[in-house]
């Protein structure tokens, strides 16, 4: 469940959309029955802990439906008071929460203090919730700068810290100067390890929550009108998605460039490139047409892994024979 670009008036990208609790619980129930969804149920933001009671209901429902890895993202604003931090973590752990991602960095710090982050890390450790502190950086504002605002004792209770470059989608696109942003990412990476079946507040379902969910083109259905199983089946059959999973968006560049699409501009990483590709409906039309031709060529259905996809048709036929 994801709500990127969230603000007081909804999402800057999707408008003021909201999923009812019943829709969320129903989606979790349906997802529990789908083998390829995996073991993890993650509640992301905006800031879900504005309504902690609903979060607890969602965690408990995921636990009762048999999810074995129940996780969430928060900016930990609620942990400014150490006592409240303990109470929230205690209740969340009892409801089934096992891991918490804390999304916080230089740009959060005027609103959520380093003290709150430290309280959150300590309270999570107190109640056995594993933590992942997620930071973004630009040329001027490094991970070290953000971490130095949190006490070392508290940081030593954290399990994992992950830092990545800011990439210019959503609000970062309009509020951070381009020359501040790192454009050094490896554009040959694949989406292999960053996939999550993602439901955004409009009910649309996506294969990841790193920017693709802010496009219309990569939506595979909507839980308000389709069963989740049908949407996942659509993903499983999608040759385009397999190329993304195992080849990454970089594998699509040649197809688009052949049709005159210019994607030579700087990209911070593959998520930024993916967002740029799929924000343009014309690109999607080109890619869909190309994938249909591949399917008619019959060997597309044999695609399994990145390397095999990148092999020639002859190599694939030989390996299958």
């Amino acid at each position: 469940m994801c709500y990127q670009s969230a603000g007081p008036k909804g999402s800057a990208v999707m408008g003021d959309a909201e999923l009812a609790l019943d829709d969320i619980l129903s989606a979790i129930s349906q997802a529990a029955a789908i083998l390829s969804v995996g073991s993890r149920c993650h509640l992301a933001g905006g800031e879900a802990f504005i309504d902690t009671a609903q979060c607890l209901k969602i965690f408990a429902h995921a636990r009762d439906m048999g999810f074995e890895d129940i996780t969430t993202t928060t900016n930990a604003y609620w942990a400014q008071n150490r006592g409240r931090a303990s109470r929230v973590c205690r209740d969340a752990r009892r409801a089934g929460l096992l891991r918490m991602e804390i999304s916080w960095d230089y740009w959060h710090s005027p609103y959520v203090s380093g003290t709150a982050i430290g309280n959150c890390l300590e309270a999570c450790a107190e109640y056995g919730i594993k933590t992942n502190l997620r930071i973004l950086a630009t040329k001027t504002h490094s991970a070290q700068e953000a971490l130095s605002q949190v006490g070392r004792d508290a940081l030593s209770r954290c399990d994992l810290i992950m830092s990545g470059p800011v990439f210019p989608t959503g609000r970062a696109d309009s509020s951070i100067p381009k020359d501040e942003i790192f454009f050094t990412g490896n554009l040959g990476n694949t989406c292999h390890s960053v996939l999550n079946l993602t439901i955004n507040p409009t009910g649309r379902v996506y294969p990841c929550c790193a920017g693709a969910d802010q496009t219309e083109a990569l939506a595979f259905g909507n839980i308000k009108s389709d069963r989740l199983q049908a949407i996942v089946d659509r993903m499983s059959r999608s040759l385009l998605l397999r190329v993304l999973v195992f080849g990454g968006p970089g594998a699509l560049l040649a197809i688009l460039e052949e049709q005159g699409v210019d994607l030579s501009g700087p990209h911070a990483n593959i998520c930024h490139m993916c967002w740029e590709i799929f924000s343009n409906p014309r690109n999607m039309a080109i890619l869909n047409a190309h994938m249909e031709r591949l399917k008619k060529d019959s060997f597309g259905s044999l695609v399994f892994s990145a390397t095999e996809y990148l092999c020639t048709k002859e190599q694939i036929e030989e390996s299958v024979a």
Binding site: A143, S156, T184
Partner: peptide
Amino acid sequence: LLADQGVNGDGFSLGV
């Protein structure tokens, strides 16, 4: 190193 431009530009994970 956590202030290094190259490290911040590519990103990193740190298991504490």
